[in-house]
């Protein structure tokens, strides 16, 4: 295997490994911009993954499976938003509670779907683009969900920074009271943002089960939801930087497995630390380079909104 082939394979693996985390992280960016902290991403990914498997198994249709996963994501997102907005619960605690609950529910409901053959998504070469040297085989020899993720990131960025909804989103995330005074519905904006974010996380889960695992396994996400939440801070709430973080994470996974295959003589446990250390390192380096810019999140993040006070 020559160097270029190796690098290409690593990079293609990076895109695959990074995509589920990417989707969830971009979703969390959107949610947190509205001032809601959703720590339930791990659980929502699990729910999305299982829903996609069940629907794919029952209908044999990938399209329905993805739609169903998105719907479940939206539903759970609304539940979380409802808890946060109506009951003013502690958002850190509910997020963790939602994850515990969903890991239980998915394990319970998934019993009949373990080891079942489902219709999974296979790679689809983009006709002209996949012929490009290097980039073609890295970015355009993937599956439709990856291509979808290429579209989702700029769309999310545009949604936040280029639309009226984006303006209200940022307003309720920064100064909910002022936003409410200006006629923006804090409740509705936050609900929409949380639901959209959860839909993306569920899509990330569906990616894991439909593309990667091609079936259901308990705890299929193995902690990727938490990583996604972490990457949002890494990305300072910017979807583009979330992509960077997710791909960085994917790169380290892809690289360590391929280094092993290529015969690197390092303990696999030390190699396994690479994804985590790499993200920390890049975080530190990027902070050192732009020390002046403070990267505080939305000021109203995770603060319950009490309109009457």
């Amino acid at each position: 295997m020559d160097d270029l082939a190796f690098i290409t394979a690593v990079a293609a693996g990076m895109v695959r490994s990074g995509t589920p985390v990417l989707l969830a992280a971009v979703g969390e960016c959107l949610t947190e911009r509205s001032g809601i902290l959703n720590l339930g991403m791990e659980g929502i990914m699990l729910a999305g993954a299982l829903t996609a498997v069940i629907v794919s198994y029952l209908t044999g249709n990938i399209f329905f499976a993805i739609i169903a996963a998105l719907a479940i994501g939206a539903l759970i997102g609304l539940l979380h938003a409802f808890l946060c907005l109506y009951f003013h619960v502690n958002q850190v605690a509910t997020g963790i509670a939602v994850t515990i609950l969903l890991s239980g529910i998915t394990a319970f409901c998934g019993i009949d779907y373990v080891g079942k053959s489902i219709h999974s998504i296979s790679a689809y070469k983009v006709p002209w683009l996949s012929e490009l040297p290097f980039f073609g085989s890295v970015f355009f020899n993937q599956d439709i969900l990856v291509y979808l993720s290429y579209a989702i990131v700029p769309l999310t960025y545009f949604l936040i920074n280029g639309t009226r909804f984006g303006l209200s989103l940022k307003a309720v995330g920064e100064e909910p009271r002022a936003a409410a005074a200006a006629g923006v519905s804090v409740f509705r904006t936050r609900c929409i943002a949380t639901a959209l974010g959860a839909m993306l996380a569920a899509l990330g889960g569906a990616y894991l089960s439909l593309v990667y695992a091609q079936g259901w396994t308990e705890n299929i996400t193995a902690g990727r939801g938490w990583i996604a939440v972490g990457l949002v801070m890494f990305a300072s709430w910017n979807p583009w930087k979330a992509v960077l973080g997710a791909y960085l994470f994917g790169l380290a996974i892809s690289l360590q497995l391929r280094l092993q295959a290529a015969g690197a003589d390092v303990s696999p446990y030390l190699l396994g630390m690479a994804p985590y250390l790499l993200v920390i390192l890049v975080l530190a380096v990027s902070k050192l380079r732009q020390k002046k810019i403070p990267a505080a999140g939305p000021t109203a993040l995770s603060i319950p909104y009490l309109p009457q006070v």
Binding site: L83, I96, A97, V98, I100, L101, S103, G104, F108
Partner: peptide, 14 residues
Amino acid sequence: PFATVNILQGMIFI
């Protein structure tokens, strides 16, 4: 199954 422990725990917390 073990999953019910998590379901109960999560529901009670919520």
